[in-house]
Nucleic acid binder design. Structure first.
Ligand code: MN
Ligand code: MN
Ligand code: ZN
Ligand code: ZN
Lengths: 134, 134
DNA sequence: ATTTCAAATGCAACTTTGTTGCAAATATAG
DNA sequence: CTATATTTGCAACAAAGTTGCATTTGAAAT
């Protein structure tokens, strides 16, 4: 599906910023940060616009956010677009890149009595296959 | 074990800031943020000192950090002090409190070929037993 | 094609979180 | 008590994110 169609399906206005962000995230093989996305866009948008766009796209489940640490947020396409299940994410301590591990499907954990789960986030830190070789 | 002994065992100077932080974290039944810890201390330390203390205590595996989101970090006693295993953490969407789920031991996930795990972080978001009741 | 207007953008000002360099204070070994 | 390596506080800074408001724009209606 094309960025423009995705926006249309969600009743979102087709602005170049939103379209650009979706375009860049769709064509990436890994999760990207705000700055990585900015670098790949032709036009330069204000930070505010960028943040508001991410917020809107997240709310409409077009993209999802991966919090690596309190200082680093990355974005990838959401499961509702990729038709994948909830999955773990991998952070390479070496190249610092984040990948969606679509094969690592998240299974719910046993919780203490009275607790209810709504969402489970898993972040695996380690070394990716590319960095392992070197 | 007392805060002073913990510091002594790690060859760390016994300063009131470090001792206070450990004291507060030890006596809490949940993970606390920088500000929550500050409020519970008698003396007011500079933010820099606070951050440096957290860093030192983390490096010596006396406390561990739980990143709730890119804006929120909480601290709890580390497993090396509590003698517990790597566990998942629970964030209550209602009361916004974080708890170590020491019964929810982390089991390693299957990774794609060539990937190596070093650490797995699990954060479960949902409603805690107290908030459920109300 | 032109008009209309709710929604999106850009800008300025601000907040929160965290970091760095350096001088002053202090914990602890001798 | 003294010496000194560590730790602390302060100032200055940086990065990330938010808010209010005036301007611009997408797209629906005419
Ligand atoms: Mn993902
Ligand atoms: Mn914990
Ligand atoms: Zn790597
Ligand atoms: Zn709760």
């Amino acid at each position: 599906m094309k960025p423009a169609d995705i926006l249309y399906n969600h009743n979102l206005k087709r602005t170049s910023c939103r379209e650009g962000i979706i375009e860049v995230i769709m064509s990436a093989d890994r999760a990207l940060s705000e700055n990585e996305i900015r670098k790949r866009l032709k036009v330069n948008y204000d930070r505010t616009t960028f943040y508001r766009s991410f917020k809107t796209l997240e709310e409409h489940k077009i993209i999802h956010r991966i919090v690596v640490d309190n200082q680093t947020v990355k974005y990838a396409l959401d499961n509702s677009i990729t038709n994948k299940k909830e999955h773990a994410h991998f952070y390479c301590n070496d190249c610092q890149e984040v990948q969606c591990l679509e094969s690592a499907v998240i299974r719910k954990m046993q919780l203490p009595a009275g607790y209810t789960e709504e969402e489970t986030e898993i972040l695996i830190r380690g070394t990716c296959s590319l960095c392992k070789r070197n």
